[in-house]
Nucleic acid binder design. Structure first.
Lengths: 211, 211
DNA sequence: CGTTTGTTTGAAATAACTCAACGGGAGTGG
DNA sequence: CCACTCCCGTTGAGTTATTTCAAACAAACG
């Protein structure tokens, strides 16, 4: 994936749990993750949290800002994160005279839509086990695209609490599901690393949605 | 909301349960609902169904085709539906030289993203009752925008099975939740019409998400 | 008028949640 | 270096939300 033909202002760094974006913030730039993981989330007044999107290295955070210039929900770093900033004005200018790099941003929007649709189906109609398996497969495949998979192992910095908030279950239940997956020797998950011991079985456990 | 400055090929009509779009279909036009309700859904091989989006009069169906030209999931009419078609080529041309009508399509994409985010949160973190209340409020407000609300009553052609497939619960449970709402005199729902008897209470029952 | 589609109800089963407690690091301050 | 705290993962027991299955009924439809 070629970088957009914009000279980045330079790579910036933030620490784990620091906010990249706050709620309802307006912005004049897009962010692209260089290293580390971040997420967009919604926190309810009573403490319930739902993670809406995960951003991995190479991902645009909220490319739809191109359309609205406004962030609906906050984005927080789940690990230490380094990222670059891309001025919206520049991207919009490219859009007007059809510069090729713009396609990358439009594709990012289309991909976001597709991911959201997938997770609406997962959250609405899949069991907790199916959802966790689908998440692990999704993350593994995205890490594969950026060359972070070696011998069926990749980084997995999410806590069980994070996982629970992605797939919409309690942290305790997430723990129990992971125990089962480990017990059946489908995955190994320790010290921030995920290993797929039986990828075919893991995919089967995603349910009939994986086709 | 002004119509795009494109002479529509004319209004077309399809019957309830007919497909507007099939899975993975490529397309050279956008659809806009004139009258009736439609939905985009995902049907799993084992029979589970999740409705991803509802399309009401005035809505663009899947404005993101502007980006991809491809429908991920089928769209089916939930009632008899009339709609108009807008050629993508024409919209893209407008996009290139910044015709004003194009904004409407971009806004539709942004709105779709926001709706999807809302439903990811609802499906992940809200109870069945909260989700059903949120759906009813959402539909009511959208009908209000197009002037279909009279004296707190609006059309509601969804079956309880449809409702269940939007909010990700079983049809039986949807029925029981609706019974409760009726029993508490919050809504009346019969013969394809919804009446809000106690809008404030209904909004409270959406949970803390409604702010 | 028979058939289909949509709604209602009951009873039993299951998935997932809550609460509570414990243990092992990893950092932090003295 | 030690003691302390906090975060994270783990486990057990009891509770609640939701599902499944089954049957009956009502309304709409041709």
């Amino acid at each position: 994936m070629a970088a957009i033909a914009i000279e980045p202002a330079g790579v910036r760094h933030i620490r784990r749990h620091a906010h990249l974006v706050r709620r309802n913030e307006t912005t004049d730039r897009l962010f692209r993750v260089v290293d580390g993981w971040a997420c967009q989330y919604r926190l309810l007044p009573d403490g319930r949290r739902q993670i809406i999107s995960l951003f991995l290295p190479g991902d645009y955070c909220e490319a739809q800002w191109l359309l609205t210039g406004r962030a609906n929900w906050p984005i927080v770093a789940l690990t230490d994160v380094s990222f670059v900033e891309l001025p919206l004005a520049r991207i919009r200018a490219d859009l007007a005279h059809g510069a090729p790099g713009i396609l990358e941003v439009l594709n990012a929007i289309a991909r976001t839509l597709k991911n959201h649709e997938t997770w609406i189906v997962n959250l609405g109609r899949m069991s907790a086990t199916e959802r966790i398996c689908a998440l692990l497969v999704d993350l593994f495949e995205r890490m594969e695209l950026t060359g972070k998979v070696v011998a069926n192992r990749c980084p997995m910095p999410l806590t069980q609490h994070d996982i629970a908030d992605v797939v919409g279950i309690s942290a305790v239940h997430a723990n129990r599901v992971l125990q089962i997956l480990r017990g059946e020797r489908v995955i190994a998950l320790t010290a921030g690393r995920l290993e797929l011991l039986d990828p075919a079985e893991l995919r089967r456990m995603c349910g009939p949605a994986c086709q």
